[in-house]
Design a protein around this nucleic acid. Sequence first.
DNA 1: TCCTTTCTGTAGTGATCGCTACAGAACGAT
DNA 2: ATCGTTCTGTAGCGATCACTACAGAAAGGA
Lengths: 196, 196
Amino acid sequence: MARKRTFDRDEALDRALRAFWRHGYEATSIAELTSVMDIRPPSLYAAFGDKRRLFEEALRRYQESYGAFTARALAEEPTARQAIERILYEAADEYTDPDHPHGCMIISAAVNCGPDSSEVEEDLRLKREAAKAALRERIEQDVTAGVLPPDTDAASLAAYYAAVIQGMSTQARDGATRDDLERTAALAMRAWPATT
Amino acid sequence: MARKRTFDRDEALDRALRAFWRHGYEATSIAELTSVMDIRPPSLYAAFGDKRRLFEEALRRYQESYGAFTARALAEEPTARQAIERILYEAADEYTDPDHPHGCMIISAAVNCGPDSSEVEEDLRLKREAAKAALRERIEQDVTAGVLPPDTDAASLAAYYAAVIQGMSTQARDGATRDDLERTAALAMRAWPATT
DNA sequence: TCCTTTCTGTAGTGATCGCTACAGAACGAT
DNA sequence: ATCGTTCTGTAGCGATCACTACAGAAAGGA
């Protein structure tokens, strides 16, 4: 019927993802995106809508790939403690992987926003809150099941580990190594409530 | 000799500081700055040089006022443990103070940067590294003095508390309350090495 | 009062922002 | 081969970016 697309849409999306991951939503210009995606602006707009929708799609892709390890650990590990410990150690590995930008995209892609991208800022904030809520719910499961003491403050414990993970992301962007973050993970696990 | 300045330079600097603190270096435009400072661009440039120098001066002011509590705690408290515990609790208070933007300016003002402000990004990164080094040195002091066991890993402990503080800053910007952060601070202190 | 000096507001500079009109190129269908 | 459709590259849209030329206003010294 008509002319076919001459670039790989998945490949282009992954390159846009990494640009947003590295520099954030607002600081990544269309010129930078078209450069790393190796396409011209009309192709970008035809394939992805606009900058905002490209970011949303990149973010969805991020959560389904690089950022999926947290949901996986929460679903697969038998206890909240093992799940969170695994999340911390996988974060140490993932956040410092030399094959892609450091840190977590959801934590760092929309920190410095002008009035035009406050919706993106809010969107990521809600995702961070959802991640924290997932930690809390997993902990509450174990409290209900008797794995953790009934007086366990699940919300505070979840907020604490969320903060540690966010701090690890910042440190990774500042140049911390995997070993550095693993030592932070080990120390963070010392706060886990005793179950004797 | 000549006409006098008609605005309060200190007041204008404080308003610029808060704008940079809230939105970050790059996302805060000259238009936004002149608006909150209630001056016109030529007055801004005459009084502060350019955007970059205004930011640097605002940052210096931040470190000497809102951000001075960490250095104060390290200098005044008798032990590293008491200093860090005080830092965590003062951060919980300071980062959620309704009288100014939430979180820490040094942690969050230059996260999303384009190529033109990579020097600002690096400048803040060095300040974060310096803060972490100050924690490590205070811990090492106590190791040398015998307050902490000789096998204490000062660098790891410092990195861990730096990460917690950075996480608390992110949580504060996401809407966490002072009580929320105090509970995180309490949990974080459970990682402190035993001294029995 | 007049002069000099510095500040102030208006009104722009060129560069870049996100985005798109337009025309030619490349495909499948006929 | 010709047509219709969709993609592609060039080139440029209005808006905003950081920044400034310029002229009038306001101060102190004569």
